[in-house]
Design a protein around this nucleic acid. Structure first.
Length: 590
DNA sequence: CGCCTTTGACCTGCGC
DNA sequence: GCGCAGGTCAAAGGCG
């Protein structure tokens, strides 16, 4: 789309707006964003002005214009709804930010008070309460002072349980209510990170503490703590270069796979609890199966954020999906949502969507989400995610969740794929009371014919928010446009938060709305307009990356977890880039 | 010398 | 309780 033609399109829009009586400046800008139809040219305008009585062809054109206007009206209406939703989300975000700030201040204050209490040898009972609210970290030191070991263990467990309960509340509230603090399912992951590893990582078995024991119990109570993200990619290199630094700490020959499984841990920060497992698929050696566990507790290199975002978001989907729904918080997004095909259907046929990866099947205690970059989009048989969870646990909290990043490219060693992303969620219905499984299938399908609108969105956003970035002519350099626009978008925390929250709400409401009691639900949301095809783009272009990256980068923004967001891709595999994954040599023995 | 990989031993959870 | 398998540890050695 050229700028000139875009301008004429705006003129027509303005005409239409004057008809409908709408029109402040902000709305006009947003309209520009949503504009998806081909803009009217000067010829078109002359056609309109000259009237329909000149010739049949012009009459036809006028009809087409009428139709286009009607479509635009729908788009405008939808845009208005989204705008209202966005404003509400932004308000909520600000409120939550203030609440979070207050909470942090309060906790800091409490902690300093507690330290003072320690100095004055006051009782520890009050501190135990503080511990519980501090996710179980503080009690450890406090209880070391206790003489009675059994009592210590008991109280330790209690403290952790309480802390965990608090976490659950947070997690649950995250997807149920917009007005509660920390509505982010991702927070749950963050909590998991801190509790599973956190500052005490790596846990030494020789120094296993009572806290560790308690943590084990807690982890059994909360399987989501060990949520994993499994990535299947066709890759010739030994490991994926995800931008992080990894140290290999073990290797095992797993049953059913001649290829050894390598264990890596993140070495960017000594206390980082993130681990990954790398293994070749036994059935197809070209497929590299990488499983990530945990969240980084340190700033990530820029090159690592995409992968971390994806895994984090995917893990968040696992966690967030476990939350109960609040139908009241559901926005009116069941209709046209710019390219996101959203399916909710009965779970009676869920089994057909599972693929099994015996070579990398995780422990039943690990809910695992698999991002499959190896198979073709919907045309092929669905290769979704294998989700495992231990039925002995409170399985109602955990959603078998599937993501499928499919690619037509045989060498899917980067995030570039055809943009097909699907998320299948098999969810124990209604807290497992009725044993009714509901399959919710979320898919984001980039549609090749809908490339323009995304350009409009990105370009308009750039125009609005950043004048420093040159906007290339979209039709000439769409990849550059998108890359630059993505930069701008990712630089704006408000937009990120708002969009993240919106998407989370959309996804969350869709996947959890069955809590209202509908056993058979089929819901579709089409969202294609916002996910243009990028099949023509080079591999460094836009991707269907999952982006809670900004959630990682900015904890204050971590208001939503399960979201899928467009983000600058990173090559998953390149032989030892500068950011260097030391583990690239990890499969030497292979 | 520091960091990394290798590799056998050990620990733990789970199924029978 | 036992065996199996997954996961982790840590000493030894290699490499830059």
């Amino acid at each position: 789309m050229e700028f000139g033609s875009e301008r004429s399109g705006h003129e027509v829009k303005d005409e239409k707006r004057s008809e409908s009586g709408i029109g402040d400046e902000e709305d006009r800008r947003e309209e520009k964003i949503v504009m998806k139809g081909p803009p009217l040219t000067n010829v078109d305008r002359s056609t309109v002005e000259s009237g329909p009585n000149t010739c049949p062809t012009k009459k036809k054109e006028v009809d087409e214009l009428e139709n286009a206007k009607a479509e635009m009206g729908e788009v405008i209406e939808e845009n208005r709804r989204l705008k209202m939703c966005l404003n509400q989300i932004l308000n909520d975000y600000r409120t939550l930010q203030m609440q979070f700030h207050n909470i942090v201040e309060q906790q800091t204050k409490d902690f300093s008070d507690k330290v003072n209490n320690d100095e004055h040898q006051e009782t520890i009972i009050d501190e135990s309460e503080l511990v519980s609210l501090s996710l179980g970290r503080l009690p450890r030191n406090n209880e070391k002072n206790k003489a009675s070991k059994p009592l210590k263990e008991e109280e330790d467990k209690e403290g952790l349980s309480l802390a965990l309960d608090c976490k659950f509340e947070t997690s649950k509230s995250g997807s149920t209510t917009e007005h509660l603090p920390n509505p982010s399912p991702d927070n749950s992951v963050e909590v998991e990170k801190e509790e599973t590893g956190g500052e005490s990582w790596p846990p030494s078995k020789g120094h296993k503490t009572n806290r560790d024991t308690a943590e084990d119990e807690v982890s059994q109570q909360n399987p989501a703590k060990k949520a994993r993200v499994c990535l299947r990619v066709r890759c010739d290199t030994p490991t994926l270069n995800d931008g992080c630094q990894w140290r290999k700490y073990g290797q095992k020959i797993s049953k059913g796979n001649p290829c050894p499984r390598a264990y890596y841990r993140c070495t960017v920060a000594p206390s980082c609890p993130v681990r990954k497992q790398v293994q070749r698929c036994s059935q197809d050696m070209s497929i590299l199966i990488t499983t990530y566990e945990g969240n980084h507790n340190h700033p990530l290199p820029l090159s690592a954020t995409a992968m971390a975002s994806t895994t984090s978001a995917a893990a968040s989907m696992l966690v967030s999906g476990s939350s109960t729904s609040n139908p009241g918080s559901r926005p009116s997004t069941s209709a046209d949502l710019h390219g996101m095909n959203f399916f909710l259907s009965d779970g009676s046929k869920t089994k057909q969507y599972y693929i099994s990866h015996p070579a990398l099947s995780s422990s039943p205690s690990h809910p695992t989400i698999t991002l499959d970059l190896t198979s073709n989009p919907p045309s092929s048989s669905p290769s979704f995610v294998k989700f495992t969870s231990n039925s002995n646990y409170n399985s109602q909290r955990y959603l078998p969740t599937s993501l499928n990043f499919s690619s037509n490219e045989s060498n899917a060693t980067s995030w570039t794929n055809n943009g097909f992303l699907s998320c299948t969620t098999q969810q124990p219905y209604n807290n497992n009371r009725n044993n009714v499984n509901v399959l919710s299938n979320i898919s984001l399908v980039r549609q090749q014919q809908q490339q323009q609108p995304m350009e409009n969105i990105l370009t308009s956003y750039m125009q609005k928010n950043n004048n420093n970035i040159a906007i290339p002519p979209p039709q000439h350099s769409l990849p550059d446009t998108i890359a630059a626009a993505t930069k701008v978008i990712t630089a704006d925390p408000n937009f990120q938060s708002a969009l993240a929250a919106a998407l989370t709400t959309i996804i969350g409401s869709g996947s959890t709305s069955k809590g209202a009691g509908e056993n058979n639900m089929s819901q579709k949301m089409k969202w294609g307009e916002s996910f243009p095809s990028t099949s023509a783009l080079p591999s460094s272009s836009i991707v269907s990356g999952c982006a809670s990256s900004f959630l990682n980068k900015s904890p204050s923004n971590a208001q939503s977890g399960s979201l899928i967001f467009l983000q600058p891709p990173l090559p998953l595999s390149s032989p030892r880039s500068a950011s260097g994954s030391p583990g690239d040599n990890g499969d030497k023995k292979n």
